[in-house]
Design a protein around this nucleic acid. Structure first.
Lengths: 221, 221
DNA sequence: GAAATAAGTAATCGAACGATTACCAACGCA
DNA sequence: TGCGTTGGTAATCGTTCGATTACTTATTTC
């Protein structure tokens, strides 16, 4: 396979993995397994894990701005803010895009990742302010809604939709439309994570012993 | 010193460290050094790093709800939402409280931490909804603003306040009041991080060599 | 058809980290 | 005074992870 195609595969896989486990929590081995290649190949293709994550952030931002520009190009009677909002929520169908961005947004103290995340955030700001013609308050308000969406997704709040009435109320208020889609995407993700976890367990049989011992010790305490 | 007092010191230090580096990124050694104790002591006092972080989250949430309840008790002509907002921003003066919460909010996929974070978030929701008497939309809107604040703080956006006019515009819109306080807190934090980084570097002289070699290799490429 | 280049892996290494163990010192108290 | 309890530390261990090295296999290209 051509390296360029493989690169895209790895970036998609990495977006998903970084979204699930965060920049520090995700490992290059997880990315490699998800992409169906070896771990050294991932490292050699991107240099370092740090550079890989920066590329993931950049790509995620690109997906975001592209779909916003599509919205901006089409004509509609629906207010622009609401259409952007729907486009934003639609991105949950691309696993890890919003979550990777969110993980970048809390790493401001990191010299490299933090700078990339700040620049990316400001790219969105400039788009809304200049290309979409939003005013400062309008932008701020829109972005706040976006951060709320990110948080709900990051918290896996939909997991408690069935069981907790308050969660249902909150999510209904936060996602007047598109809540079904969000829940569907979340369910897919949960299945994926469960499969992933079982696969990992089956591979490392020794660790199960250790875990059982630990559990027993905690139960005694 | 009594163990109980030492415990509080460690929790304060851990809040700061987890806020800066995240749950996975922070190490028990960093927490220990920040608290002025040995690393094994931190681990033994809280059992595991995971339990320590859950306690940090719980404590941070407590700080938040306590200051909200103080606001709720006092009488004022200013709308409740705005007063809560000010109280929320005031929490930046307690290093790591908001940031630790934010780091918890993106770890929803973690079985233990995720559950704690979701419960914590819903605690705030219930407070606003039941004790403060907010309606669903009002709560959602308020929380969105809060997430926006968290993101701005997490991104260290104030670092670019002087240099980037757009950042200035964004922050002014996001923090109509209290921006000065936010910037002051951020500056304190930056100084702290710089000192910390220099101290760490001075201790590990071998690693400087490795880093320099890496930089040289990158420069060649 | 050989030589070079591209695509990719297995094996392994050094460092960092969380956790454990074993030990030490001070204080209360009978 | 001896002795247990409380509050700690130094040393170390096993694992994990990112990165490196040294190969192998295909596909061009001349």
């Amino acid at each position: 396979m051509r390296a360029e195609d493989r690169r895209e595969l790895i970036l998609v896989a990495a977006t998903r993995v970084f979204g699930d486990y965060g920049y520090v929590g995700a490992t290059t081995s997880q990315v490699a397994k998800a992409a169906g290649v070896s771990q050294p190949y991932v490292v050699r293709m991107f240099g370092t894990k740090e550079k890989l994550f920066v590329e993931v952030l950049s790509r995620a931002l690109d997906r975001l701005l592209v779909s916003f520009r599509v919205v901006l190009a089409e004509e509609s009677d629906v207010p622009l803010g609401r259409r952007f909002g729907l486009a934003y929520v639609n991105l949950v169908s691309e696993p890890g895009v919003l979550l990777s961005l969110m993980h970048g947004f809390v790493l401001g103290s990191d010299p490299v990742v933090g700078k990339a995340a700040r620049c990316g955030f400001m790219d969105v700001y400039h788009f809304l302010r200049n290309e979409a013609g939003f005013g400062p308050d309008e932008v701020q308000n829109f972005l706040a809604g976006g951060m709320m969406v990110n948080t709900m997704v990051g918290l896996r709040m939909t997991d408690d939709y069935e069981t907790d009435p308050a969660v249902r109320e909150l999510l209904t208020a936060a996602f007047p439309e598109k809540l079904d889609q969000l829940r569907a995407a979340a369910q897919l993700q949960r299945k994926r994570e469960a499969t992933e976890r079982e696969t990992t367990k089956r591979e490392t049989t020794k660790r199960e012993t250790t875990e059982r011992e630990t559990t027993e010790r905690e139960a005694q305490a």
